[in-house]
Design a protein around this nucleic acid. Structure first.
Lengths: 148, 148
DNA sequence: ATCATTATTGAAAAACGTTTTCAATATAAC
DNA sequence: GTTATATTGAAAACGTTTTTCAATAATGAT
C-alpha cells in the first residue's frame, strides 16, 4: 500500500526533485482508482481534493509517475491516452469493445513467447510491446445479433 | 494495378461522392510509395504533382482511402500517425526500433490464432488487432554494446 | 450543350490535447 | 532564518487535425 509512495520518493530524490503535497495527492488519486483514466478524468478527481490544482500539474505528475514505473500510458485508438497502474500489475494486453468502449485486460505468457520467437528470427531485441484487440464484447455482440 | 482505382471509384459512387482529380492524384501518390507515410509527407509528395493541393484535402482523402479499405492508419507511439497500403497486403504487426525508428513488418499466423483463443475464452468477438513490439534492431543493438 | 444541384476544394479559423513560459511560491539544504 | 532553486498554476504557444466558408467543379436532368 505504501510501497508506491516510497517508489515515488526514491525517484524524486534520485532525480534531485522535490516532494510536494500536489504530487502526493495526485498519486493518491491515481492509486485509488483501478482502470484506465485520462488526464482530464484524473484532473477532475484531483480537483475534489484540491480545487486549485492545475491541469498542467496533473500532466507533469503523470509523466513523473510513468517515468518512475508506477503508471503506464495506454492508447486505445480514440486519441485519448489513458493511465493505468503498473506497479505490482503484470503486463497485459487490451481487448477493447468497439461498441461500448469497455476494456478487458488479458495476460498470457504465449504472447510474450511469440514476441520473443518472432524477434529472434529477425535479429531484433524486444524491450516491450503493446497489443490491442478490437472487437465486440459479449453484451454488444448480443445487440448486434438482435438488430439483424 | 488498376484495381485500387476501381475500389475507390466504387466507394465514391456507393457513398454518393464525386470523383475528382485531387483524389485520384493523392491515391496515385500514396500507391507509388511502399512504407509508412505521415500526412505531412504525403502532402509534400502531392505538391510535386499539384502545387496548389491543400493540406486539408490530403487529410480528407486519406480518411476516405482508409474507409474504402485501401489504406491503414498506424501509430508507433511518436504521436505521428502514418498510412500504409492495405489492399493486397496481408495483416502484419510492427517491430519498431526505439533508437533509429526503423519499422519491420512481421506477419505470423500464430498471432491471429492466439488472438482467437484468448478472445474465445473471454466470450469476445475479435474484429482486428494491432501489435507493436518496441526494441532494438540489429544495428542499434550493436551500437548499444559498443558504448558500454 | 446548358442548367441546376450540391459535393469538393483550399485558406483561414477553430478545436483539441499537450507543452512551454513565466512570475509567484514552496521546498530543502545550509 | 536565509538562500538556492524546484514547483506551481495561468496563460500563451504549440502541433496536429477538424471545421467553416465562399468559390469552384462534378454530376444528373433537361
Amino acid at each position: 500500500m505504501d510501497k508506491e509512495y516510497e517508489i515515488l520518493d526514491s525517484f524524486i530524490r534520485f532525480r534531485g526533485l522535490r516532494h510536494t503535497p500536489q504530487r502526493e495527492m495526485i498519486l493518491r488519486v491515481f492509486l485509488s482508482v483501478e482502470g484506465h483514466l485520462s488526464v482530464e478524468e484524473l484532473h477532475a478527481l484531483a480537483k475534489k481534493h484540491d480545487r486549485s490544482i492545475g491541469y498542467t500539474t496533473v500532466y507533469r505528475t503523470m509523466k513523473l509517475l510513468s517515468e518512475s514505473g508506477l503508471a503506464d500510458k495506454v492508447e486505445f485508438g480514440d486519441g485519448i491516452p489513458r493511465y493505468e497502474h503498473k506497479y505490482n500489475h503484470r503486463h497485459h494486453d487490451h481487448f477493447v469493445c468497439v461498441k461500448c468502449g469497455k476494456c478487458f485486460e488479458v495476460a498470457h505468457a504465449g504472447i510474450e513467447k511469440l514476441q520473443e520467437t518472432l524477434a529472434r528470427e529477425r535479429d531484433f531485441t524486444p524491450l516491450w510491446h503493446t497489443m490491442q484487440v478490437f472487437g465486440l464484447c459479449k453484451d454488444c455482440r448480443g445487440i448486434e445479433i438482435k438488430l439483424q
